[in-house]
Design a protein around this nucleic acid. Structure first.
Length: 334
DNA sequence: AATTGACTCAACCGCCCTATT
DNA sequence: TAATAGGGCGGTTGAGTCAAT
């Protein structure tokens, strides 16, 4: 994640909150009060972090009233939980995390918060976005329902074993152990973000959080201005890989057959194209190895899927026995 | 260089559940 | 028991970005 300037509204002015929202529970307080909406500013983030450092999380409406933020309690809660909380991971989901999401979603469906409990540092919002933008996209391309049994089977029988192969194939020397950025951060950035994961917060919470906020806002400014963050704001520029690559992207050609039909599998040629995952690509950058041009996002490309289908059929492997079985996972996670 | 369309994801919406009074 | 407040959850939106044309 690059900290791009985003948000549902770019309003810089204040706006009345929808009276249908839960905050009509406080009509006297909010009726005439102009509340801010849209993207959070650096000042607001600092204010929120400072307040939570002093008073702790929770009681969000009280926080909203007492902190000086012209935001709703719900907005404050969301900002903290999805963005500012110090143990939040940034960057692409690792193959392991993707595996877990796929597995847990097959068990629980759209129970995002429940799934997020098993991915430390990942928010339900992030997982939900991942599912909707990546997984559902693949389902659309395959012309099958993402919630269908056939899609779940495809995930379980073909994609998960492949992911397991990938995770075990990444050389130890280039695996990222710091999980804050899947897109490998520059060394300075690693230093900057290290306290997020390796150290206890110092007593001076503001000094602890400030570099993190500054980094994230710098990312936003850099992204929106086109300027290099390291030269303008004295913060490192974080490299990032393009996130999406389908067969169309790769070969410039459309594809119009369903890989789950046996005749299509048989008709598929032997030229399986395999693209490594972005985690490995990032790790290569981290180790100054020039990544090949074929790195794509963490989900499969169409070619990959056809390739693995073909190869697994050739091998006549029974994939109901792959190590990340539903049984073992559910036993462990329940 | 300008336009367009697909994509991402932070933020919001509205409903629901639980705790408190 | 009912009313209200606080908070959580899943779904949705739309601004910003980027690649393709």
């Amino acid at each position: 994640m690059s900290g791009k300037k985003r948000g549902r509204s770019s309003l810089s002015h204040t706006n009345k909150v929808d009276q249908d929202d839960q905050y009509n529970h406080h009509p006297r307080h909010h009726q005439d009060m102009e509340l801010r909406r849209g993207p959070w500013t650096l000042e607001e983030d600092t204010l929120l972090i400072h307040y939570i450092a002093c008073h702790g999380e929770g009681r969000w409406n009280l926080l909203a009233r007492c902190s000086g933020l012209k935001r709703t309690g719900k907005s404050c809660r969301l900002r903290w939980l999805n963005y500012l909380k110090p143990d939040i991971k940034r960057g692409n989901l690792s193959p392991e995390e993707q595996l877990l999401i796929l597995e847990l979603h097959s068990k629980w469906g759209n129970r995002w918060s429940r799934i997020a409990q098993y991915l430390p540092g990942r928010t339900d919002n992030e997982i939900k976005n991942y599912w909707r933008t990546r997984v559902q996209k693949q389902a659309r391309q395959l012309k099958i329902d993402a919630n269908s049994a056939s899609f779940r089977d495809a995930i379980r029988c073909y994609w998960m074993p492949r992911m397991l192969e990938k995770t075990s194939n990444i050389p130890q020397s280039v695996q990222l152990t710091n999980n804050s950025m899947a897109a490998a951060p520059a060394p300075a950035a690693i230093d900057l973000l290290q306290p997020l994961h390796d150290q206890d917060p110092p007593h001076d919470h503001l000094s602890y959080f400030q570099p993190i906020i500054l980094q994230r806002h710098a990312d936003q400014i850099t992204a929106s201005s086109g300027l290099n963050g390291s030269s303008t704001l004295q913060v490192p520029n974080l490299p990032e890989f393009s996130s999406s690559c389908s067969m169309d992207d790769i070969h410039g050609g459309g594809i119009d057959f369903n890989p789950f039909l046996i005749e299509n599998i048989n008709a598929f040629g032997s030229g399986a194209w395999v693209n490594p995952d972005p985690m490995a690509a990032s790790a290569l950058v981290a180790s100054n190895i020039n990544p090949a041009s074929d790195y794509t996002d963490g989900l499969w490309s169409m070619d990959q899927l056809y390739g693995m289908l073909k190869s697994y059929m050739d091998m006549d492997v029974e994939y109901s026995m792959f190590p990340f079985s539903t049984d073992s996972a559910s036993t462990e996670l329940m």
